[in-house]
Design a protein around this nucleic acid. Structure first.
Lengths: 229, 229
DNA sequence: CGCTTAATTGATCAGGGTCAATCGTGGTGG
DNA sequence: CCACCACGATTGACCCTGATCAATTAAGCG
């Protein structure tokens, strides 16, 4: 696993403020947080927050993909989660962040101030219920990721990742991988070479087809599910 | 990894009801949930709940150790967490459980009815806050476990596990492992043999001493922390 | 049309899984 | 009280998967 540039260079934090967020909180159900957020645009590769930062805000993804990750002492990075539209991230109990977050692609996010939301929650019961749900969703994600990491074979991991991404991105047969092979590898606890080999193997077996490097066509879902064990 | 007996045989659920729980909720701070729980004793090895069960209750550990785990299609089991005194487990959003839980040692637990707590929470803001904190604590645990699983070497994993267990069990130099090698292996995504080899290697290097099979004396914390990378 | 970065492919090596034998310990019954 | 038994843990030998090192190809991008 390579030493990541992001580990050495501090990326400047440049977020473009867009407008009040009340018009696109991205939920069909009446969204109690509608008025509490602010919309920002983050360019691909930009840092959203870093380990050690204040936990004074959290985020919801409107569009784009975010990676939440940790940089280990030896320079490796472990990606804990990819967040897509509708996902909330950056909620933590402590005062300082345990993780950092960066934009995998250009993103639109809603920023919520922690204190504002806490104040709202103390008056509106639906808000605290909502916050609890966010926490539980993140918990389910993390648990799923643990299970993925615990899988034995490399092929299993990659297959499970493709299926999971297909499901989460809401696409059906042709899925677009917003992330690089390196990012997939850092998410699955593998090397870039192994990820690459697994994918080409799937292609040889006629399970998938690689239209571009980023666009994967799933030809045989059943076979992929079998591979994912 | 071996097929676990627990995967083949359904363990009968026999919990001894003890008394109203208000006298030992196990927290120094005023515990709003004091009156909502019931205390039960669970014998070592007994099932607390299984995958697919109703999510109508959740638990807090008063004493003993609980494993929360998932049985994979191939018969392997993955242990997602060990829960000790003070930990809450079994909270889920869905109606059916994704995981099962069993007593690693004889345990005393407090059982909370989900609906009761929800009703309390709608009136008492401290309760919903408390529930949110439980969720966040579980999230932190799960994230930590992901990081542990993503570690490269077997020795790293085992060393990190020992340190984590030392911290969580609150003991200082001599730690008592409530679980078997198999359980450690299933938690770390390793085999029983590899766990064993790592431990004996640590002993040869003078980092730890194995008083019993279950009682580990940590002789050199610094070295262990180095090993955990 | 080069230049840079990402991805693929190949060859080699080592860490950990697997299989198998042995040891140790605690519990039971003669 | 001791012998035996059953189960968990340890140890050893071997093999296989995935990491590592290295070279090549592909793809953006100015």
């Amino acid at each position: 696993m390579t030493i990541h540039p992001a580990f050495q260079a501090t990326v400047s934090k440049t977020a473009t403020l867009v407008a009040g967020a009340d018009w696109l909180a991205g939920q069909k159900t009446p969204e109690p947080l509608r008025t509490a957020g602010t919309v920002v645009q983050i360019a691909e590769g930009r840092e959203i927050f870093a380990e050690g930062d204040d936990t004074d805000v959290f985020y919801k993804v409107v569009s784009g993909v975010v990676r939440v990750c940790k940089f280990l002492a030896d320079g490796r990075r472990q990606i804990a989660a990819f967040q897509v539209a509708g996902d909330v991230f950056g909620i933590e109990l402590g005062l300082e962040r345990e993780m950092s977050a960066e934009a995998v692609s250009d993103c639109t996010l809603v920023v919520y101030r922690r204190r504002s939301v806490e104040q709202l929650a103390s008056r509106d019961e639906t808000i605290s219920r909502q916050m609890f749900q966010f926490a539980m969703q993140n918990l389910a994600q993390a648990t799923g990721h643990s299970l993925l990491l615990a899988r034995r074979g490399a092929a299993e991991k990659v297959a499970a990742f493709l299926l999971d991404w297909q499901f989460r991105s809401g696409e059906k047969n042709v899925i677009h991988l917003a992330m690089t092979r390196q990012e997939i590898a850092d998410y699955l606890g593998l090397t870039i070479e192994t990820v690459s080999r697994s994918l080409t193997q799937f292609e040889r077996d006629g399970v998938i087809a690689l239209r571009n490097i980023r666009d994967v066509c799933i030809l045989n879902t059943d076979a992929l599910e079998d591979l994912a064990a």
